[in-house]
Design a protein around this nucleic acid. Structure first.
Length: 406
RNA sequence: GGGUCGGUGCCCGAGUGGUUAAUGGGGGCGGACUGUAAAUCCGCUGGCUACGCCUACGCUAGUUCGAAUCUAGCCCGGCCCA
């Protein structure tokens, strides 16, 4: 994007990877998004599709969502599409994982938790700014005649040109035929909701372009594509994803979120500021450590409020120094369900600080577990009653804490 | 449908009858260090309220005192041919 961006549209272009079509010198409203925005008489319909295959939403999902919010604030209509139909079929993209079919109930549940988690980001209140649609409203109604019509708009060669497919084809990883239907179904969503703009990650370019083709095919004005970068994960190298474990979930408690963010690797720090906050990039602190703290504070504020963010910042500072006076910011774990006498490793496991009791044993042996700041190394240390534990902070590693309560 | 090669723990990948959760690498987790991290060094890496018991090498039956390793059938995938 070499065009100079008018300041009135800086919100639109912050952190954007690509806009298409983008004839920067064109005054035609169907080729230039800024012209389109200027000349339109009505709020634009801005589409964003989400995939309710998992219950967890993370910061990587949030960046397109934040852009959607920016459109809402500019007076446009966010059309959030829940891909419940596509999810029910099961997206086999990527590995030859078990292509588990989700049940209707699972999808509905996931969709609801998804909406709960993005609640802090989007404007749910203002009338006319949000439209939530499910693609099961229209996709199951397509009969084979219609499906053939969709299929006939594309060639195998065009499909195989898609990044993921091309790659898998050369690596001899299986590609199933119904996967070819995915871009078409997603594209048809754009037709169904008459989208003016579709948001998505850069990996969505192909699918969004298919949407344009289909809209044209059905006599609609093709949508604009607005691509946001793929957020890198907390490892600073691979894209943020749950399966890689390098993610920060929107539903995580404030302390966990903060302690993950405050160690954001330097290489992605600026990107995080650009994509996850509204802070002007010229005004960041010099010291990288201060930047990390500011980032953590900003982001946690978005999801938990300013007061909680500040409290948790203070707590994180003290906790790593072994100061337990800040224990009130720590999530609580009730000992009520524990049978005493109980051994230390069981407590660590039961409180979910570790994934299981075997893991808990190892962590204790590795010296990762502390109680009230004191390192515990005896796996079989037994507590006969819960009484001495009440109010104490149990810790595993540097940023997993739990306060034991009745 | 035919031919052929192959399916091992989170991933890749050794192993081809025998104390053994199964070499090695990656990743992950933890410890030390540091600006928290990264880099580096070190440790851990199937599960289980555990000095014992489960479950593991595509699935199911066999052969064996004993199999991830041998046999048969089945399932799944790659490539070539149709």
């Amino acid at each position: 994007m070499t065009q100079t961006i008018p300041s009135e549209f800086s919100w639109l272009y912050r952190g954007i990877s690509e806009v298409f079509p983008d004839q920067s010198d064109s005054l035609a409203a169907d080729e230039n998004l800024i012209q389109h925005l200027r000349q339109t008489e009505r709020p634009l319909r801005v589409k964003l599709g989400i995939d309710p295959t998992a219950a967890d939403v993370h910061l990587g999902h949030s960046i397109a969502m934040r852009k959607l919010r920016a459109f809402q604030d500019a007076g446009h209509t966010a059309v959030l599409i829940i891909g419940d139909f596509t999810a029910r079929i099961g997206d086999p993209t990527g590995k030859s994982e078990a292509r588990r079919q989700l049940t209707i109930q699972e999808v509905a549940h996931n969709a609801q938790t998804y909406l709960d988690q993005v609640h802090p980001i989007l404007d749910f209140e203002t009338l006319g700014r949000l439209e939530i649609r499910y693609n099961s409203e229209w996709l199951p109604m397509l009969d084979l005649t219609k499906v053939l019509e969709l299929l006939a708009t594309m060639t195998v060669g065009q499909m195989l040109a898609k990044e993921g497919f091309a790659d898998r084809h050369t690596r001899e990883v299986p590609i199933y035929l119904h996967e070819f239907l995915y871009p078409l179904m997603q594209g048809y969503d754009s037709v169904a909701v008459q989208a003016d703009v579709e948001l998505g990650g850069t990996d969505q370019k192909f699918n969004i372009a298919v949407g344009r083709d289909l809209q044209r095919h059905f006599g609609q004005q093709p949508q604009f594509g607005l691509l946001v970068p793929i957020l890198l994960g907390t490892d600073g190298s691979q894209k943020m994803s749950k399966s890689l474990g390098n993610y920060i979930g929107l539903a995580e408690d404030a302390l966990t979120m903060y302690s993950k963010l405050e160690k954001t690797p330097d290489v992605v720090l600026t990107q995080y500021f650009e994509l996850l906050t509204d802070r002007p990039l010229e005004q960041l602190p010099e010291n990288p450590r201060d930047r990390q703290k500011l980032l953590a504070l900003d982001v946690v504020t978005q999801y938990h409020g300013e007061a909680a963010a500040k409290q948790v910042q203070q707590a994180a500072l003290s906790l790593v120094q072994g100061d337990m006076t800040q224990a009130d910011a720590v999530p609580e774990f009730s000992l009520a369900s524990i049978q005493f006498p109980a051994k230390l490793f069981y407590l660590v496991s039961a409180s979910k600080l570790c994934s299981g009791s075997s893991e808990a044993r190892r962590q204790i042996q590795n010296g990762a577990v502390r109680l009230e700041g004191d390192r515990m190394t005896d796996v079989n240390l037994t507590f006969d009653t819960p009484d001495p534990l009440y109010g104490q902070v149990l810790q595993c590693g540097k940023n997993k804490f739990v306060r034991l309560v009745p």
